[in-house]
Design a binder for these strands. Structure first.
Lengths: 338, 338
DNA sequence: TTGAAAGCGCTAACAA
DNA sequence: TTGTTAGCGCTTTCAA
């Protein structure tokens, strides 16, 4: 029951303690840290010294309350479990910590309801938000964006700043690649309907197919997972295409497994291309040809732009930032045999 | 220049606004939300009503300042890019949001320096910390734990509560499996020296090997990545083992690829077992046999225990929580041919 | 059951 | 350059 001395009630050291110990006013201590220029060099040094000795750490909540700058941003992700986000999170973290910001991670678990709820929860605590592959409607997004600086990733919402990959170009390269290999028709395995990228990719495929005179077809939608990709195989079986473009790498991988299970060889019987270039794309056999997205850069760019908006340097309705994609050729694509 | 009406200066709605509109004192509004029992039911209803109409949202910073409960916990991870953490983060998120807590994600990028720095940064903002696979020394961890409730994952630090997997049992099962397949000796490919799990696994392997009369040997350490695993292959070549246990799945996968590149067939020529059962373990060919960790459960358990400590329900120095592992047999292990 | 008033730790005018 | 004085928005005694 006794208050053990070791863990003595540790009231945190405040600015007042430092002020007293250094023989100055609290405001001077505050200045010494926030605006070193506005205080006598010697005094500042002494204050820092004393503060260090006492182990003073500014209380971020008090700072936030007084300045209304929380030094935190939220990173809302549709599914933390999706490897697509790993590098992206890393990038966001990097950019944020460089600016001395902390990242609040929120996970939507592929649900627009969960997404809205978590957003509401974190909103008051952050200065801005990066929303990755949102499953919410454009109007819901606008409602959020009206409250705090917001950047959407992988999505194009009129009036909101965004960071997206160059889907048209990526698809185009994929289609050209397939065309060169002699494929005559391409099947697209669609992802979630609420996904902007899905629409963008299918649209780009239709256009590229049209221009290059290849037939295109669409099956799905399927969940953006390995299971989703695997599940679509039987729909493909009636009318087996020689080439398929999958919504993302996970779907592509599931598809390849399903195909293999059905005794269909990739790439001999059918060529498969994915999107994103997640780590697993390189690990599977055959290696997956994919339209690579600059994952980490996306995270960095989103956060930097967000910061620019927060600091008022960038106007909110700036146009979309389009990041380049590139086709990574591996072993899942080959010359058409049929 | 004109203040466009649409984005009118939106001073957030405070408790005072609600109080005025509802014709009560601010403290009553506060009570109505925090301690509904202590306020007249009708009054409370009216307040909630008014608050909703006005779009009142409590300012978490003000709440935190006044109660010194920030409703945030930090999740420190050695490498966000490592798929090992995906499910774990999901679990932590789940448990946290259930308790209405928010997760602050920190990424150590496999560096003890970065780890300490980020920890220092987030420390004052959170009520507690979950540290995943720390690369810091035990004493540094204790220093942190002295300041805020802390739970370490995948590590056993005397005096600190922790959540770990049952490495001895897992290794034991792996060794038995290999033994049954007729292997006589097992090589362990070691991970980072600062990793507690690495030590635990190697130690367990020695013991199990001793009991089951199998020879054991150790190579490495290597970085806990695919590249790390791949790089160790040439060291293995001089004296090719028939069975290897790798520090984790990533290393195991890298190893398999390296072996394949050297013309060595897995599992015919050598059997490989990993640890963790990350998603990729199932996706590679051959599928990786591995000692599975209950990833999501680890995250959930860690956060729940942390919460218990925060609420004073659990004593800080509670013993380690040991979570069960199980051997997932896939195609990377087979009968010894040599 | 409600109101008044003080205070959480820090910053930001305004004076000196 | 420094000190004084109000708050930031909320919770929490203490009275009424």
């Amino acid at each position: 029951m006794a208050d053990d001395g070791d863990e003595a009630a540790k009231r945190p050291v405040t600015i007042y303690d430092v002020a007293r110990a250094a023989g100055v006013a609290p405001s001077t201590v505050s200045r010494a840290f926030a605006r070193p220029g506005r205080v006598n060099a010697d005094t500042a040094a002494r204050i820092r010294q004393v503060a260090a000795e006492l182990g003073y750490r500014a209380n971020p909540m008090a700072q936030a309350l007084s300045t209304s700058r929380t030094k935190m941003i939220a990173l809302m992700i549709s599914d933390v479990t999706n490897p697509f986000y790993s590098e992206l999170i890393r990038g966001a973290q990097l950019a944020a910590s460089e600016a001395e910001y902390t990242v609040l991670l929120a996970d939507a678990r592929e649900s627009d309801v969960v997404e809205r709820l978590s957003l509401e929860r974190v909103l008051p605590a952050v200065e801005g938000i990066v929303i990755g592959s949102s499953r919410m409607s454009d109007s819901s997004l606008r409602v959020i964006a009206k409250q705090k600086p917001t950047i959407v990733l992988n999505r194009d919402v009129a009036g909101l700043p965004s960071v997206v990959t160059d889907n048209p170009r990526g698809v185009r390269r994929a289609v050209e690649h397939l065309g060169e290999l002699g494929h005559q028709q391409i099947t697209y395995v669609a992802g979630p309907e609420a996904s902007w990228a899905d629409g963008a990719r299918w649209r780009a495929l239709r256009e590229a197919g049209h221009e290059l005179e290849l037939h295109t077809r669409r099956v799905g939608p399927v969940p953006p997972t390995v299971v989703g990709g695997r599940g679509v195989v039987e729909k493909l079986l009636d009318n087996l295409p020689t080439a398929v473009l999958a919504y993302n790498d996970l779907v592509a991988i599931g598809l390849m497994r399903g195909l293999a299970a059905a005794g269909i060889d990739v790439p001999r019987d059918v060529s498969v291309i994915g999107f994103d270039n997640i780590m697993a794309a390189e690990l599977v056999t055959p290696g997956l040809t994919t339209v690579a997205a600059p994952l980490r850069t996306m995270g960095v760019t989103a956060v930097k732009n967000l910061q620019a908006i927060i600091n008022g340097a960038l106007h909110r309705s700036e146009a979309a930032f389009v990041l380049p994609t590139r086709l990574v050729q591996r072993e899942s694509t080959a010359r058409a045999r049929r």
